[in-house]
Design a protein around this nucleic acid. Structure first.
Lengths: 198, 198
DNA sequence: ATTATTTTGGACTGTTCAGTCCATAACTAC
DNA sequence: GTAGTTATGGACTGAACAGTCCAAAATAAT
């Protein structure tokens, strides 16, 4: 019966996601958002409700995408220790940087900008961090079982340490610390991780 | 000759600093700023020029204060290893949290929000990170000489690792990760740091 | 073709934004 | 006290803000 929607919601959401990723929430105006998404104001509000709801939807999408990509990465038939090292190094690979250089991680950016002032956004951030930490702990455990990661740290502690590593790296990236120093931090940290015990 | 200023510039700057620290740059309006500083619009502009210049001045002040406090902390006559542990743990001490709970570190917040889009602010951030990294490297070296820190890592690598540790922690604080997990991350990381070698 | 339904563009709202400006108040030096 | 200088409060600016609303266009089913 009805006239059907002319744009793809997920594609529009991806564009919104990129806009928030590039400039942050407050600094992204509705004008920026509409231009990035290629939507008129009424289509935007009809579909997403408000700027803040669009951000929440974008966060969910980012989180799902990121987790799916991470799971895929770790499903390769390669020693877990190697996969882990590659995964962490991926976070400072300029070639892998979307949507542009030095935009960091959307979750980290939004956590810093908004999480303490908006509990719904905090929940979205926390949910992603929890999923990621749980998956990393599982992965470390798999590495232990497989033998590529020496049994030492409690896997949940190792996972939190990795979480902290990538969060810190994303901040230093934005702060302009040189890539070779970031690479050194990662190398040293990975060595620590695979040697230390509780 | 002239009528003299009725407010204390440094005190006003501290209030501006707190406002930016609590809400970030974009989300802090001139109204917020004037209310926090107790200044009228004309006094503010006469004295600080613009919102952005006020932020730059606040960043400089924060950096100087933070570095001075850090230097003082490490001047105590206690083994460097202990001072270092206390210094890192201080960053998650709720009692030491100014201006409020979960506001993180001003430099980290601003680095994430603005550094990639404003080179002058990036310079201010970089300057602080460089000062801090240099001081930490020096401190680790002192710990090596003194014997409280085993000679292992290159001190500059150790310093970058510490920098990354506290940056990551500030993000996770804002993201709402539980204090006991943050404490565990710090404990494990410190153990790593004092054991690993290049 | 007509009708029912929904998207769409764009005009419009009132508010808030950072920043300017000036008349007045306050103070110092004489 | 008076003259000279500067800080101050508050009115004012135009632009940008998020969000509303409606008439017109487009589609699908009958």
């Amino acid at each position: 019966m009805p006239r059907c929607r002319e744009f793809d919601i997920d594609h529009a959401l991806d564009q919104a996601l990129n806009a928030f990723w590039l400039k942050g929430y407050e600094a992204t105006s509705m004008m920026d958002l509409m231009a990035a998404m290629g939507l008129s104001k009424s289509s935007f509000y009809e579909c997403f409700g408000s700027k803040r709801e669009a951000l929440l939807a974008a966060l969910r999408r980012y989180s799902e995408r990121e987790m799916a990509e991470t799971r895929r990465h770790f499903s390769a038939d390669v020693p877990v220790a190697e996969l882990l090292a590659a995964w962490v190094r991926h976070s400072i690979d300029p070639a892998a940087c979307r949507p542009s250089q030095r935009c960091g991680c959307l979750i980290v950016n939004i956590a810093v900008e908004l999480a303490p002032h908006d509990s719904e956004i905090e929940d979205a951030v926390r949910h992603h961090l929890d999923m990621l930490a749980a998956f990393l702990a599982e992965t470390i455990q798999r590495g232990n079982a497989e033998g590529s990661i020496p049994v030492g740290l409690d896997p949940t502690h190792g996972a939190d340490l990795l979480l902290n590593l990538v969060a810190g790296i994303q901040v230093l990236v934005k702060g302009g610390v040189e890539p070779h120093r970031l690479a050194a931090i990662i190398d040293v940290q990975l060595k620590c991780l695979f040697v230390t015990s509780d």
